[in-house]
């Protein structure tokens, strides 16, 4: 009896899986996604990237939640943040996660960049992923800068004033930069509205697809990790190369005679992917 129920359940789940697979191909995609081989030795180090992803996801989630109460006007912005902190259930937690995960994000992004830099992870064919990463870094910095003003408290206000004044020193476009950020020629309601629009819509809308692209490019070329992941293979390669060298010398050949880049018949390194 139980056996029959179990086999029926298995049949049903297999049917659902097959049905979805036939219509969407999602099962194959999930398998590719989940069972890709990744470097084993530095696994803990490679959690930095996914930590960034997780923290940004937290930013999106808590940011959307904060919008349920936040009011982007100069006379109510501070009051609404105060309401979130004092009256809304778990307001301290939601805003706290938004605040603290933003702080962690800056630190983790720095560590992630340093790891990729020192392990040479930006080298061919992963150049564009590095470029996308730098764009993401700039977007996150923009989000950090614009988010600070939204509380409309002394800290955020004056820090943003200083930041905007820095922009006014840009050569040639200084005036346009600061008038764009201020929404006029003085700090006022337009400034807060602009920062709100940039922080809540513009930059998140830009960052989300770029994160997708970052992950797509990561998966396309595989996780690189660092050279230490390849020590055995490199040792084997050097061994083979040395043997080849010896055999050529024994045959009295000049090793650089006809194959001066020593990369074998292909003669080119462009084929590597």
């Amino acid at each position: 009896m139980i056996g029959r129920a179990r086999s029926q359940a298995a049949d049903a789940s297999k049917f659902v899986v097959d049905w979805m697979e036939h219509r969407t191909g999602v099962v194959t995609h999930m398998e590719h996604f989940l069972y890709e081989p990744v470097p084993k030795r530095g696994a803990w180090v490679y959690t930095l990237g996914s930590a960034c992803l997780f923290l940004i996801a937290l930013q999106f989630l808590t940011g959307i939640l904060l919008l349920f109460y936040y009011v982007p006007t100069t006379d109510h912005a501070w009051d609404s943040v105060y309401y979130i902190m004092n009256d809304a259930y778990f307001g301290v937690l939601i805003r706290g996660i938004h605040y603290w995960s933003a702080n962690f994000l800056m630190a983790v992004i720095g560590m992630h960049m340093a790891q990729v830099f020192f392990s040479g992870g930006y080298k061919a064919p992963r150049e564009l992923n590095w470029v996308v990463g730098v764009v993401l870094l700039l977007l996150v910095i923009g989000l950090a800068f614009t988010g600070y003003l939204l509380r409309w408290d002394q800290d955020g206000f004056w820090a943003s004033v200083v930041g905007m004044k820095i922009g006014s020193y840009s050569p040639f476009i200084g005036g346009a930069t600061i008038h764009f950020l201020l929404g006029g020629d003085t700090v006022g309601p337009a400034t807060l509205s602009r920062f709100f629009a940039i922080h809540v819509w513009l930059l998140p809308a830009a960052i989300a697809p770029l994160i997708g692209l970052h992950l797509y490019l990561l998966r396309r070329h595989g996780v690189f990790g660092s050279e230490s992941e390849y020590t055995e293979r490199l040792a084997k390669l050097h061994e083979t190369q040395r043997l080849e060298e010896y055999s050529r010398l024994e045959m009295g050949d000049d090793p650089y005679d006809d194959d001066d880049d020593r990369y074998g018949d292909n003669g080119s390194r462009n084929g590597r992917e």
Binding site: V161, M164, K165, S168, G175, I178, D185, T186, V187
Partner: peptide
């Protein structure tokens, strides 16, 4: 040098 001003009025 009019690009630098006290923008907080």
């Amino acid at each position: 040098l009019d690009k630098q001003q006290p923008y907080v009025v």
